[in-house]
């Protein structure tokens, strides 16, 4: 993370521009082509919101669906507590996540379990600050760069690192994108990434009935909220005491000592609660 941000500072360019440059070189493709592919990803992300917040959406298991609609309705009627920015981010994160649970078409960001966080952050920034599509697409390169650093030094899989590795990584990626979209510096990006990860450190992966639904969908909402918290702090000039690279290293260490029961096996955490077990039985007709 450090070296990447140093390079951006040295070249006096946005992190996203640097990442696009490096990727073009690595993939031996013109920048325009890589940009277009990322734009396609962004358009798929945007296309998830409408079907994902439909009132009658139901997951394949029947356990979830319709919450994005509830949140969206509250925001559109001006009734939600935290206004259109946070409310908008929350309903969008729920929408993409609920669409995923209903076996819809989404973009893994970085995983399907955490697919609502990055789109919710960027699409909401676009709406609230009238940003261009190009700015939003470019911010996805910054988000991806953060994801690559985490993938190389820790993990993006809930089965290996718990939910911190999935929603935590997505939250850090989203925080970086938000800071860039708000015109923040590379140092602010580093602080936002560190803070987003610190605040979700240790979160376990405990899906009820083994499905990417409960509590995953709501953790996408909290993941994007955490991204805005981290970005807001960083943009105000608040530095993370622990640098991002050390937080990422810590996330790996925490994931390593996390018991298997709390790493996507549906054996511990919320999956092992009386209600969690009952829901498992409801879906599969057998007691876990």
């Amino acid at each position: 993370m450090e070296s990447l941000l140093e390079a951006a500072k040295e070249n006096n360019c946005r992190l996203s521009a640097l990442v696009l440059e490096q990727q073009a070189e690595q993939m031996e493709l013109p920048k325009q082509e890589i940009y277009k592919k990322m734009r396609e990803n962004y358009r798929v992300m945007a296309s998830c919101i409408q079907p994902g917040s439909a009132p009658d959406l139901k997951s394949t298991s029947g356990l979830t669906g319709g919450d994005a609609y509830r949140m969206r309705t509250a925001v559109e009627q001006g009734k939600n507590l935290t206004g259109p920015l946070l409310g908008g981010a929350l309903y969008r994160a729920l929408a993409v996540s609920e669409l995923n649970a209903s076996m819809g078409r989404i973009v893994a960001a970085p995983t399907a379990g955490s697919c609502g966080i990055v789109p919710a952050a960027v699409l909401t920034m676009q709406e609230q600050y009238q940003l261009t599509e190009e700015e939003c697409v470019m911010s996805l390169f910054t988000a991806s760069a953060v994801g690559m650093v985490i993938a190389n030094n820790a993990s993006l899989a809930g089965a290996q690192g718990g939910c911190q590795a999935e929603c935590g990584s997505a939250s850090a990626m989203a925080a970086a994108a938000i800071v860039e979209l708000a015109g923040g510096t590379p140092d602010m990006i580093q602080s936002a990434v560190a803070t987003a990860l610190k605040n979700i450190l240790g979160l376990v992966c405990d899906p009820v009935a083994g499905l990417v639904e409960i509590p995953c969908i709501k953790r996408n909402a909290s993941g994007v909220a955490g991204a805005f918290v981290a970005a807001e702090l960083a943009l105000a000039g608040i530095r993370s005491a622990i640098p991002a690279d050390e937080v990422i290293w810590t996330m790996k260490k925490v994931g390593d000592v996390m018991p298997t029961a709390l790493k996507e096996t549906a054996e511990g955490g919320l999956a092992a609660t009386p209600t969690g077990r009952k829901l498992h039985q409801q879906v599969f007709g057998e007691m876990k």
């Binding site: 990727q23 990322m38 076996m103 989404i106 970085p110 995983t111 399907a112 697919c115 996805l140 993938a151």
Partner: peptide, 19 residues
């Protein structure tokens, strides 16, 4: 690894590792 291993693939849910 490249950016599209992180943001991507476009896929059918519900789990990138399990689906």
């Amino acid at each position: 690894m490249n950016v599209f291993d992180i943001l991507g693939p476009v896929m059918i849910g519900p789990s990138s590792s399990h689906t």
